[in-house]
C-alpha cells in the first residue's frame, strides 16, 4: 500500500450528497480480473454521455462537459470535496480502487458510509471528516479560485488552505500509523517478518520434507 504522509494538490468539488459506490464505479466493471485500471471508469455514468462497457477504450467516448472532473480547471485533481454520506451502497472495494487509480488520495466530506470509510484506509486513501460549515467554506473557496490547492498533513492532522488557514481533523491512531507507514494487512504481518523467518528456520529443522519439494 502507498504511504500517506503529507501532500498538496488540486481540489475538486463534487456537490451532491449520498454518492453511492455504484456511482463511483458501476457494476458492469466488477467482472475484471484486476484491481487496477478502474480509473477511466470512475464516476462512469456522470462522466460520459454513453453507457460504458468493460474493457472499452474510454479515450474516444463523449464526455459530459458539465461534470466537475471533466472541467479543465480541475485537471490533475487529487483531493475530492464531497457532501454527506459519501460512499454508501454496496461494499465493493472497487470504489476506493477506482478513486486511487484515477489519482485521488483524499476525500473530504461531512460524513462517510462506514464500509467505504474502512476500505479507504486499506487502499492508501485518506477520508477526512470536517464539519458542515468547514466543508461549505471549502466548496465556496474552491469554486471561486481557479487552481485552488489544499495541503493535507496526516502527521499533524490538518488541512491547510491557500490562505494558511488550518482545519484540524480526527483520525484513529492505529489507522494513522498504518497509512503513515504504508501498512495494509500484509504490511502489518510483514512487520513480524523476523518471527516468521524464525518459525521457518525451526520448521525446516523439524520437517525438512516440507521445503524445496514442490518445483
Amino acid at each position: 500500500m502507498k504511504k500517506f504522509t503529507k501532500m498538496t494538490g488540486i481540489a475538486a468539488p463534487l456537490d451532491r450528497a449520498n454518492v453511492d459506490t455504484d456511482m463511483i464505479i458501476p457494476k458492469q466493471f466488477l467482472k475484471s480480473i484486476k484491481r487496477s485500471g478502474f480509473g477511466p471508469n470512475l464516476f462512469d455514468e456522470l462522466r460520459y454521455l454513453d453507457e460504458g462497457q468493460p474493457d472499452q477504450d474510454c479515450s474516444g467516448r463523449p464526455l459530459n462537459e458539465e461534470f466537475v472532473l471533466n472541467k479543465p480547471r480541475y485537471n490533475g485533481t487529487s483531493i475530492l470535496l464531497a457532501r454527506e454520506n459519501f460512499g454508501c451502497g454496496s461494499s465493493r472495494e472497487h470504489a476506493p480502487w477506482a478513486l486511487e487509480d484515477f489519482g485521488i488520495r483524499v476525500v473530504i466530506a461531512p460524513s462517510f458510509a462506514e464500509i467505504f470509510f474502512n476500505n479507504c484506509f486499506k487502499n492508501g486513501l485518506l477520508p477526512i471528516v470536517l464539519s458542515d460549515e468547514q466543508v461549505d467554506q471549502l466548496f465556496k473557496e474552491v469554486e471561486a479560485n481557479e487552481g485552488y490547492e489544499l495541503t493535507v498533513d496526516l502527521e499533524s492532522q490538518v488541512v491547510v488552505t491557500p490562505s494558511g488557514a488550518e482545519m484540524a481533523f480526527e483520525v484513529d491512531e492505529f489507522r494513522k500509523h498504518c497509512l503513515l507507514n504504508g501498512l495494509d494487512d500484509i504490511g502489518l504481518t510483514l512487520q513480524y517478518a523476523d518471527e516468521i523467518k524464525a518459525y521457518e528456520a525451526k520448521a525446516r529443522q523439524q520437517s525438512p520434507w516440507l521445503f524445496d519439494a514442490i518445483k
Binding site: R35, I196, I214
Partner: peptide, 22 residues
Amino acid sequence: SPQAFEGLRLAGRQPWRIDANI
C-alpha cells in the same frame, strides 16, 4: 487468484516462498 497476484504486483511484492505453492 488473479486479484491476489495483481495485488502483489501493485505493491511491488514477491511471493514469500515459491515452493509452497501449486
